[in-house]
């Protein structure tokens, strides 16, 4: 089968539809000075307030600070102010650039579930190792005190034995 063969139009349309539905694309088009020119998609889905460019756009601007705006950029898994996670892309165009947001919430939740568990186990293991270390120290200290007591007891017994002998044989 040739890999270059185009997909049947019905399949391509179906794929486009479900991918767009899942990705919730939001496209914000800017001129070179970060002035918003147009938007396509649901800005409300990402809780980005495009009616207040100072606030809404600033959040996006901060992502590309000190990065060249004359080449395409992508920043995966960005947690937005709303708490929602998005893959953020900057796509350069003749008249400026576009910022494209694609929903990453489902992938982030999946990843977080796995990592959270692993990290919590690692932190608990560290606590356990510390507790075991402390118990070993306590046990060593108790052992040392027991040896000291035994030594003192042996000395005491030897002393009593000597004294008893002396009492018996004045």
């Amino acid at each position: 089968m040739s890999t270059a063969m185009p997909l049947p139009p019905a399949v391509e349309n179906y794929l486009r539809k479900i991918l767009i539905e899942r990705a919730h694309p939001l496209l914000l088009s800017f001129d070179a000075g970060w002035h918003l020119q147009s938007t396509q998609g649901d800005a409300g889905f990402y809780a980005i307030d495009i009616t207040d460019p100072e606030r809404g756009v600033r959040e996006l601007q901060d992502l590309f600070i000190w990065l060249p705006l004359d080449s395409d950029q992508d920043i995966p898994f960005v947690e937005l102010a709303s708490g929602r996670s998005a893959h953020v892309h900057l796509i350069v165009d003749d008249s400026g650039f576009h910022v494209l947001l694609l929903d990453a919430e489902e992938a982030r939740t999946r990843e977080r579930t796995q990592q959270q568990l692993g990290n919590e186990v690692a932190l608990a293991d560290h606590q356990k190792s510390k507790a075991i270390g402390k118990l070993k120290d306590i046990r060593s200290e108790l052992e040392r005190q027991r040896e000291n007591l035994e030594e003192a007891n042996a000395l005491k017994n030897a002393l009593i034995a000597t004294l008893s002998h002396e009492f018996r044989t004045p």
Binding site: I75, S85, A104, R112, N119
Partner: peptide
Amino acid sequence: KYLTTIGVKVDS
């Protein structure tokens, strides 16, 4: 509560 960060969160 400990909540592991995935990716990046940007604040200013």
